[in-house]
Protein backbone atom coordinates (compact mmCIF):
# COMPACT_ATOMS: atom_id res chain seq x y z
CA UNK A 1 0.00 0.00 0.00
CA UNK A 2 2.88 2.43 -0.61
CA UNK A 3 0.90 4.23 -3.31
CA UNK A 4 -2.08 5.95 -1.75
CA UNK A 5 -4.59 6.68 -4.45
CA UNK A 6 -6.53 9.90 -4.13
CA UNK A 7 -10.17 9.63 -5.22
CA UNK A 8 -12.45 12.53 -4.34
CA UNK A 9 -15.56 10.43 -4.85
CA UNK A 10 -14.41 7.75 -2.42
CA UNK A 11 -16.49 7.43 0.74
CA UNK A 12 -17.04 4.75 3.33
CA UNK A 13 -20.13 2.60 2.79
CA UNK A 14 -21.56 4.01 6.04
CA UNK A 15 -21.22 7.60 4.80
CA UNK A 16 -22.48 6.78 1.31
CA UNK A 17 -25.74 5.21 2.40
CA UNK A 18 -26.63 8.26 4.56
CA UNK A 19 -27.80 9.84 1.33
CA UNK A 20 -30.62 7.32 1.05
CA UNK A 21 -33.83 8.64 2.59
CA UNK A 22 -36.81 6.89 4.10
CA UNK A 23 -39.19 5.76 1.36
CA UNK A 24 -36.72 6.28 -1.51
CA UNK A 25 -36.84 4.41 -4.80
CA UNK A 26 -33.53 2.59 -5.16
CA UNK A 27 -32.16 0.90 -8.27
CA UNK A 28 -29.89 -2.03 -7.37
CA UNK A 29 -27.69 -3.72 -9.95
CA UNK A 30 -27.25 -7.45 -10.35
CA UNK A 31 -28.68 -10.58 -11.92
CA UNK A 32 -29.31 -13.03 -9.11
CA UNK A 33 -26.16 -12.50 -7.05
CA UNK A 34 -23.95 -11.73 -10.06
CA UNK A 35 -22.92 -8.07 -10.13
CA UNK A 36 -24.46 -7.24 -6.75
CA UNK A 37 -23.17 -4.40 -4.51
CA UNK A 38 -22.91 -6.64 -1.43
CA UNK A 39 -21.05 -4.21 0.84
CA UNK A 40 -23.57 -1.41 0.27
CA UNK A 41 -26.53 -3.73 0.80
CA UNK A 42 -25.11 -5.16 4.03
CA UNK A 43 -24.40 -1.65 5.33
CA UNK A 44 -28.01 -0.60 4.71
CA UNK A 45 -29.27 -3.80 6.33
CA UNK A 46 -27.34 -2.89 9.51
CA UNK A 47 -28.53 0.71 9.61
CA UNK A 48 -31.87 2.08 10.65
CA UNK A 49 -32.24 5.46 9.00
CA UNK A 50 -33.86 4.57 5.68
CA UNK A 51 -36.61 1.99 5.50
CA UNK A 52 -39.81 1.59 3.44
CA UNK A 53 -37.65 1.43 0.32
CA UNK A 54 -38.92 0.58 -3.15
CA UNK A 55 -36.21 -1.60 -4.66
CA UNK A 56 -35.97 -1.83 -8.43
CA UNK A 57 -33.82 -4.83 -9.30
CA UNK A 58 -34.20 -7.89 -11.52
CA UNK A 59 -34.49 -10.16 -8.45
CA UNK A 60 -34.26 -9.81 -4.69
CA UNK A 61 -31.00 -11.77 -4.51
CA UNK A 62 -31.42 -15.13 -2.84
CA UNK A 63 -32.73 -16.03 0.60
CA UNK A 64 -30.36 -14.29 3.06
CA UNK A 65 -27.94 -13.20 0.32
CA UNK A 66 -27.59 -9.87 -1.47
CA UNK A 67 -30.94 -8.04 -1.45
CA UNK A 68 -32.31 -11.05 0.42
CA UNK A 69 -30.60 -9.57 3.50
CA UNK A 70 -32.45 -6.29 3.09
CA UNK A 71 -35.71 -8.18 3.01
CA UNK A 72 -34.91 -9.97 6.26
CA UNK A 73 -33.89 -6.68 7.90
CA UNK A 74 -37.29 -5.25 6.84
CA UNK A 75 -36.02 -2.35 4.76
CA UNK A 76 -38.09 -3.13 1.66
CA UNK A 77 -41.69 -2.02 1.17
CA UNK A 78 -41.97 -2.82 -2.50
CA UNK A 79 -39.94 -4.67 -5.12
CA UNK A 80 -40.10 -3.97 -8.84
CA UNK A 81 -38.40 -6.59 -11.02
CA UNK A 82 -38.81 -9.58 -13.30
CA UNK A 83 -38.20 -12.68 -11.19
CA UNK A 84 -38.75 -13.17 -7.46
CA UNK A 85 -39.48 -16.90 -7.22
CA UNK A 86 -35.78 -17.66 -6.69
CA UNK A 87 -35.92 -16.05 -3.24
CA UNK A 88 -38.28 -18.04 -1.02
CA UNK A 89 -38.27 -15.25 1.59
CA UNK A 90 -39.66 -12.84 -1.03
CA UNK A 91 -42.47 -15.26 -1.84
CA UNK A 92 -43.24 -15.62 1.88
CA UNK A 93 -43.15 -11.86 2.53
CA UNK A 94 -45.45 -11.26 -0.42
CA UNK A 95 -47.93 -13.90 0.81
CA UNK A 96 -48.04 -12.40 4.28
CA UNK A 97 -48.63 -8.95 2.84
CA UNK A 98 -45.31 -7.54 4.08
CA UNK A 99 -43.95 -6.99 0.59
CA UNK A 100 -45.54 -5.46 -2.50
CA UNK A 101 -44.34 -6.81 -5.82
CA UNK A 102 -44.58 -5.34 -9.30
CA UNK A 103 -43.61 -7.77 -12.03
CA UNK A 104 -42.18 -6.40 -15.28
CA UNK A 105 -40.74 -8.57 -18.09
CA UNK A 106 -36.95 -8.50 -17.94
CA UNK A 107 -36.46 -6.76 -21.27
CA UNK A 108 -39.14 -4.19 -20.53
CA UNK A 109 -37.47 -3.54 -17.17
CA UNK A 110 -34.03 -3.10 -18.75
CA UNK A 111 -35.39 -0.78 -21.42
CA UNK A 112 -37.49 1.20 -18.91
CA UNK A 113 -34.35 1.93 -16.89
CA UNK A 114 -32.41 2.78 -20.04
CA UNK A 115 -35.23 5.13 -21.10
CA UNK A 116 -35.33 6.69 -17.63
CA UNK A 117 -31.64 7.41 -17.87
CA UNK A 118 -31.93 8.71 -21.44
CA UNK A 119 -34.69 11.23 -20.74
CA UNK A 120 -37.32 9.17 -22.54
CA UNK A 121 -40.64 9.32 -20.70
CA UNK A 122 -42.14 6.15 -22.15
CA UNK A 123 -41.92 3.69 -25.03
CA UNK A 124 -44.00 1.02 -26.76
CA UNK A 125 -43.08 -2.68 -26.84
CA UNK A 126 -44.64 -5.89 -28.18
CA UNK A 127 -43.53 -7.80 -25.08
CA UNK A 128 -46.42 -8.97 -22.86
CA UNK A 129 -49.21 -7.93 -25.26
CA UNK A 130 -52.30 -10.02 -24.51
CA UNK A 131 -50.98 -11.32 -21.17
CA UNK A 132 -51.88 -10.69 -17.53
CA UNK A 133 -48.93 -8.31 -17.30
CA UNK A 134 -50.60 -6.05 -19.88
CA UNK A 135 -53.54 -5.33 -17.59
CA UNK A 136 -53.99 -1.62 -17.04
CA UNK A 137 -51.37 -0.71 -19.64
CA UNK A 138 -52.17 1.44 -22.66
CA UNK A 139 -52.11 -0.46 -25.95
CA UNK A 140 -51.53 0.99 -29.41
CA UNK A 141 -51.21 -0.45 -32.89
CA UNK A 142 -48.22 0.45 -35.08
CA UNK A 143 -47.88 -1.02 -38.59
CA UNK A 144 -50.65 -3.48 -37.80
CA UNK A 145 -48.99 -4.84 -34.67
CA UNK A 146 -50.04 -4.42 -31.05
CA UNK A 147 -47.73 -2.66 -28.59
CA UNK A 148 -47.87 -1.78 -24.90
CA UNK A 149 -46.88 1.51 -23.35
CA UNK A 150 -44.19 1.33 -20.68
CA UNK A 151 -42.99 4.37 -18.78
CA UNK A 152 -39.31 4.97 -18.21
CA UNK A 153 -38.02 4.22 -14.71
CA UNK A 154 -35.90 6.54 -12.61
CA UNK A 155 -35.00 6.38 -8.95
CA UNK A 156 -33.66 8.56 -6.16
CA UNK A 157 -30.54 6.44 -5.74
CA UNK A 158 -28.75 3.73 -7.73
CA UNK A 159 -26.50 1.20 -6.00
CA UNK A 160 -24.34 -0.49 -8.56
CA UNK A 161 -21.38 -2.86 -8.66
CA UNK A 162 -18.38 -2.52 -10.96
CA UNK A 163 -15.11 -4.41 -10.94
CA UNK A 164 -12.87 -1.33 -10.90
CA UNK A 165 -13.15 2.44 -10.87
CA UNK A 166 -10.41 4.87 -11.73
CA UNK A 167 -9.94 7.86 -9.43
CA UNK A 168 -12.31 9.95 -11.56
CA UNK A 169 -15.04 7.31 -11.33
CA UNK A 170 -14.81 5.73 -14.78
CA UNK A 171 -16.00 2.13 -14.48
CA UNK A 172 -15.31 -1.28 -15.93
CA UNK A 173 -17.28 -4.40 -15.14
CA UNK A 174 -16.46 -8.08 -14.78
CA UNK A 175 -17.91 -10.44 -17.41
CA UNK A 176 -21.68 -10.99 -16.98
CA UNK A 177 -21.59 -9.04 -13.70
CA UNK A 178 -22.22 -6.04 -15.98
CA UNK A 179 -25.95 -6.85 -16.53
CA UNK A 180 -28.22 -4.04 -15.25
CA UNK A 181 -25.44 -1.94 -13.70
CA UNK A 182 -24.55 0.39 -16.63
CA UNK A 183 -28.17 1.46 -17.27
CA UNK A 184 -28.81 1.98 -13.58
CA UNK A 185 -25.80 4.29 -13.44
CA UNK A 186 -27.70 6.66 -15.76
CA UNK A 187 -31.15 6.57 -14.15
CA UNK A 188 -30.89 7.92 -10.60
CA UNK A 189 -30.37 11.31 -8.92
CA UNK A 190 -27.49 9.84 -6.93
CA UNK A 191 -25.29 7.01 -8.14
CA UNK A 192 -23.20 5.04 -5.66
CA UNK A 193 -20.86 2.43 -7.08
CA UNK A 194 -19.15 -0.34 -5.15
CA UNK A 195 -15.88 -1.55 -6.65
CA UNK A 196 -13.26 -4.14 -5.77
CA UNK A 197 -10.40 -1.84 -6.68
CA UNK A 198 -9.61 1.80 -7.46
CA UNK A 199 -6.89 2.52 -9.99
CA UNK A 200 -5.20 5.63 -11.37
CA UNK A 201 -6.80 7.57 -14.19
CA UNK A 202 -5.30 6.37 -17.46
CA UNK A 203 -5.20 2.74 -16.37
CA UNK A 204 -8.23 2.01 -18.56
CA UNK A 205 -8.03 2.74 -22.26
CA UNK A 206 -10.90 5.06 -23.24
CA UNK A 207 -12.50 2.30 -25.29
CA UNK A 208 -12.51 -0.05 -22.30
CA UNK A 209 -14.57 2.26 -20.12
CA UNK A 210 -18.21 1.17 -19.95
CA UNK A 211 -19.60 3.81 -17.57
CA UNK A 212 -18.07 7.29 -17.94
CA UNK A 213 -17.16 9.12 -14.73
CA UNK A 214 -19.84 11.80 -14.92
CA UNK A 215 -22.55 9.27 -14.06
CA UNK A 216 -20.84 8.31 -10.81
CA UNK A 217 -21.30 10.40 -7.65
CA UNK A 218 -19.84 8.23 -4.92
CA UNK A 219 -17.33 5.37 -5.02
CA UNK A 220 -17.27 2.82 -2.21
CA UNK A 221 -14.64 0.14 -1.85
CA UNK A 222 -15.87 -3.41 -1.32
CA UNK A 223 -14.14 -4.23 1.98
CA UNK A 224 -16.48 -6.93 3.16
CA UNK A 225 -16.46 -9.56 0.44
CA UNK A 226 -13.70 -11.48 -1.26
CA UNK A 227 -13.76 -13.90 -4.12
CA UNK A 228 -13.19 -17.48 -3.02
CA UNK A 229 -13.57 -20.31 -5.52
CA UNK A 230 -15.06 -17.87 -8.02
CA UNK A 231 -17.74 -16.64 -5.64
CA UNK A 232 -18.05 -13.53 -3.46
CA UNK A 233 -18.05 -14.60 0.19
CA UNK A 234 -18.20 -12.48 3.30
CA UNK A 235 -14.86 -11.87 4.98
CA UNK A 236 -14.57 -12.49 8.67
CA UNK A 237 -15.14 -9.09 10.21
CA UNK A 238 -13.10 -7.70 13.06
Amino acid sequence: MENIIHCEKLKSAEDAIKWIRHGDHVLVGGFGLCGTPFTLIDTIAESDHARELTIISNNLGEAGKGLGKLLISKHIKKAIGSYFTSNRDAVKAWKSGELEIELIPQGTLAEAIRAGGAGIAAFYTKTAVGTQLAEGKEERVFNGERYLLQRGIRANVALIKALKADTMGNLIYSKTARNFNPMMATAADLVIVEVDEIVEVGTFAPEEIVTPHNYVDIVVLNDRYEKVGGEYVERHRK
Binding site: Y83, T85, L103, P105, T108, T127
Partner: peptide, 15 residues
Protein backbone atom coordinates in the same frame (compact mmCIF):
# COMPACT_ATOMS: atom_id res chain seq x y z
CA UNK B 1 -50.24 -20.27 -7.87
CA UNK B 2 -48.35 -17.10 -7.03
CA UNK B 3 -47.24 -15.11 -10.05
CA UNK B 4 -43.90 -13.76 -8.95
CA UNK B 5 -41.57 -14.41 -11.83
CA UNK B 6 -41.55 -13.87 -15.58
CA UNK B 7 -37.89 -13.19 -16.40
CA UNK B 8 -37.25 -12.78 -20.13
CA UNK B 9 -39.87 -15.31 -21.30
CA UNK B 10 -42.34 -12.79 -22.72
CA UNK B 11 -39.61 -10.78 -24.43
CA UNK B 12 -38.41 -13.91 -26.23
CA UNK B 13 -41.92 -15.07 -27.11
CA UNK B 14 -42.81 -11.70 -28.60
CA UNK B 15 -39.65 -11.10 -30.58
Amino acid sequence: QDILGVGGAMDLVAN
